[in-house]
């Protein structure tokens, strides 16, 4: 099936699932209306809970459902849609407080019945989820602690939300409507169990061993991993995986990293990781022989998915990692298609893989345009931040036929996408990878 058709199917399924509870509650016996604002408020509460439930499915790493979009985009969507769920969950009680001020007094008096307490605590958990996710770095919350808290808060918000709906019983008094909500809660629990228990169990059976730790320019490290007692896995150049080091796969201390090795060679697999905080700052302390666990591969950021007579790559900083995987693979395959790389970095001294890129130019038809924001005094190449005029100068005449791959910080991706589109490259030819998720 065409990727667009598959994507449309999953989007329609998402819309159907997220709306279904509202429709179903209107079927069969139902209470009489209690005024527009009262019922509107309840509908928002149901919608918020349905959205929360779908978030569990979005993040359950179903490879088939996420493949047409790229799992990075699914996580990005999860982040945005969750804001919508939070807005609904906030308006729901506010409308009720406005219409029935007595309710607010009951909360302040501390005489709230249990079925309303569940709703209140559910909202508090959701609010904590929002704050800790949107401002994790500003609040200096460690990524590993955030991961654990995120799962616990999400489960609390959803399960208490469902308990609130079932406890109140308005619109869900019939047996099958109660079971609709309990079924939703069970589906979410199943999705959480799949990611947190079933997947780690599968990983335990397929351990990896650190074979080499290589220091690269620009505070980056390449970890080379070798499969231990199994054949590893096949991946497409440019894909990424979740990597667990120095802890059990059950500990939720996994981190997504791009694979930087060639997909043409079986067995060993490399990740290139920049010291950017938390876990990554200590990556250089990893020793040869340590055990690792890899959940992957994921992602659609790959030349093997988008065939073209030539490619344009845009890398910002360590965003070079998946692009190195593609360049190395093309070199190993003896591919002679024309390749152009725009590579933005701060300084020449810290530009990761610059020596290997020069070597690769002898094996593949590669042109590299370095863009330095802090160039040395004698620098004659492009400088400053990546911008449209740099693309205008560097892009070849056959640009419209090429497929473009952009990887780097999110603001750089936005600038590059816009500039490439203005330079005549169709939006369907522009692919990007988001790695700055939380």
């Amino acid at each position: 099936m065409h990727p667009y058709l598959r994507a449309t199917f999953w989007i329609l399924l998402y819309l159907l699932l997220v709306q279904a509870p509202l429709f179903v509650l209107l079927l069969g016996p139902k209470p009489a209306g209690d005024g527009f604002w009262f019922d509107f408020s309840l509908a928002l509460g149901f919608a918020a809970t349905a959205m929360m439930a779908i978030m569990f499915l979005l993040t359950a790493r179903f490879q088939r459902a996420t493949a047409p979009f790229g799992i990075d985009l699914v996580y990005y969507f999860h982040r945005l849609a969750a804001i919508g769920a939070f807005v609904f969950a906030t308006i729901h009680p506010l409308v009720l407080f406005y219409k029935e001020p007595g309710l607010l007094r009951v909360i302040l008096d501390g005489t709230l019945p249990l079925h309303l307490w569940t709703g209140l605590v559910s909202w508090v958990a959701l609010a904590a989820l929002m704050v800790s996710s949107l401002w994790r770095k500003s609040l200096h919350i460690h990524y590993d602690a955030w991961r654990v808290a995120h799962v616990l808060l999400a489960l609390t918000a959803l399960l208490l939300g469902v308990a609130h709906i079932v406890g109140v019983g308005h619109y869900s008094a019939t047996f099958w409507k109660t079971w609709l909500w309990l079924g939703i809660a069970l589906s979410c629990l199943t999705a959480a169990v799949r990611v947190r228990l079933v997947k780690p169990l599968q990983l335990l059976r397929r351990p990896w061993r650190v074979a080499r730790v290589i220091e690269e320019r620009g505070s980056s490290w390449t970890l080379v991993l070798r499969p231990e007692g199994h054949g590893g896995f096949r991946y497409l150049p440019g894909q990424f995986a979740w990597l667990t080091l120095r802890s059990s796969p059950f500990a939720m201390r996994e981190h997504p990293f791009s694979i930087s090795s060639s997909a043409a060679t079986a067995g060993e697999i490399s990740f290139t990781i920049k010291e950017l905080g938390d876990f990554t700052n200590r990556i250089g302390e990893i020793r040869v022989g340590e055990t690792a666990w890899i959940d992957g591969p994921y992602g659609t950021f790959s030349i093997d998915i988008s065939q073209a007579p030539g490619y344009v790559f845009v890398a910002g900083g360590v965003g070079i990692a998946p692009i190195m995987s593609m360049l190395r693979t093309l070199a190993d395959r003896g591919d002679r298609r024309p390749l152009l790389l725009f590579y933005a970095y701060h300084t020449w001294e810290r530009t990761t893989f610059r020596e290997e890129l020069e070597e690769l130019r002898e094996r593949i038809d590669l042109t590299v345009v370095y863009v330095l924001s802090e160039p040395p005094a004698d620098w004659e190449g492009e400088q400053g931040l990546l911008r449209e005029e740099i693309f205008a100068r560097g892009l070849p005449a056959d640009r419209a036929a090429r497929e473009c791959f952009i990887c780097g910080p999110t603001p750089m991706i936005a600038v590059a996408e816009k500039a490439l589109a203005r330079q005549g490259i169709a939006l369907t030819h522009i692919h990007s990878e988001i790695f700055d998720l939380v």
């Binding site: 928002l44 959205m51 979009f69 969507f77 999110t410 996408e417 522009i430």
Partner: peptide, 30 residues
Amino acid sequence: MRLRFAQLLALASTLLLLLLSVIFALVQNP
């Protein structure tokens, strides 16, 4: 483009749910 696509889809699906909530209330309170 991908980011914009995700943003539009999130906004559209949220607005759709908002509209459905209004319809829900209108059906119950004609």
